[in-house]
Design a binder for these strands. Structure first.
Lengths: 206, 206
DNA sequence: ACCTGAACACCGTTCAAGT
DNA sequence: ACCTGAACACCGTTCAAGT
């Protein structure tokens, strides 16, 4: 005689996400998730292969949310304004959910990582806007410079590694302006439509 | 009747560092360290308050090593060459000991973090060289831009987050050159001796 | 003075047994 | 079909007891 379900994958992922944000990755335990959804720990393994898969599901949700957030931040008028807006949106996204954000960049075991499909929109938005700003010539290294800076800055800020005083908001604004100047000198401005990639640049849909 | 010591703080830290590098932070357990130095886990607590303190001691060693490495990488001739050299030395330092490197930047509980004293030399070297390259005007936000980029880049590389192909060495070289151009336009070149800070800029010796 | 076994409160995960 | 208790192999840490 079948026992009725007491929980669901969706409830588990939602509870896991809340626990992650409140307690950090180390605090995201199967016992605590089980408590939160009202079952015993072994029952979780009916919906989820193991703790790593739960982390992967949460991280994939976060990656998709980031893509959507960046997309909404880029109305598509002035490419340079859009790029600035991406940087600001990225930072406030991370600050609003610092633990979830870390899942996107932390060195995790392969099967804990967000699905690469889930990160595609975020990557696409960046390449679209960056191509519009600087043309197609060196978009890949330029994107890496920009992402490395934004990720590094926000991570250091969240880790409280900026310990020399000074205005952190100002340092962020300083960085984005100087980087845009460095990557797209004024004479290299390009028409957005012309260089927007026809389709996703993301190579490996899982 | 006193029992002779079977181990030492130095042996514990050295063993801990080896285990950290081989197994990652999660693999650095008191049980494994105890095995490695030839005692039972409870004995470790004679030398070390807890696991966090062990992590802090290891991280402080790493921070001092980084400072020494950066210092040796900056002969002090051409400031721009020195700055490039700092970036390259930072990257190869991290790649040679990726797990230890993470202790310098990861968001850790306060009492797990490297002593701030331990990081002073690395910070000083950067400020000295950067002041020589660009003058004192905006050194703090410029240093933050540079460090955020270098840390972000190397961390993404170590986490294997660069998944779009392309040449990663080239992207690193691209980044450092563009950043130097952006932070220190040719007409802002300054005499090194004139702007080198007289003493450490580090504010809070612990 | 240092080391140890036993103990406690946790983990992730498996599995046989229940309904 | 889903849930559970019991179990196993781990953790960090404390403490009384040994030498």
């Amino acid at each position: 005689m079948p026992t009725p379900a007491h929980t669901s994958l969706e409830a588990i992922v939602r509870a896991g996400r809340a626990i992650l944000e409140a307690e950090g990755l180390a605090g995201l335990t199967m016992h605590r998730v089980a408590d939160a959804v009202g079952v015993r720990p072994p029952s979780l393994y009916k919906r989820v292969r193991n703790r790593g898969e739960l982390v992967r599901l949460i991280g994939s949700d976060v990656a998709r949310e980031l893509g959507q957030t960046l997309d909404e931040a880029t109305p598509g008028g002035d490419p340079r304004a859009d790029l600035r807006s991406i940087a600001l949106a990225f930072r406030s996204f991370a600050r609003a959910r610092p633990q979830a954000y870390r899942l996107l960049f932390d060195p995790l075991p392969d099967d804990w990582r967000p699905d690469s499909e889930a990160g595609r929109e975020a990557v696409d938005v960046l390449f679209r806007v960056l191509s519009a700003v600087m043309g197609p010539a060196e978009v890949l290294p330029a994107a890496r410079t920009l992402v490395a800076w934004a990720y590094g800055f926000v991570s250091m800020e969240l880790a409280d590694t900026f310990r020399l005083g000074g205005d952190v908001d100002e340092a962020f604004a300083f960085g984005i302006e100087r980087l845009m100047d460095a990557l797209a000198p004024a004479d290299a401005m390009h028409d957005q439509a012309r260089f927007a990639p026809a389709k996703s640049v993301f190579p490996d849909p899982r």
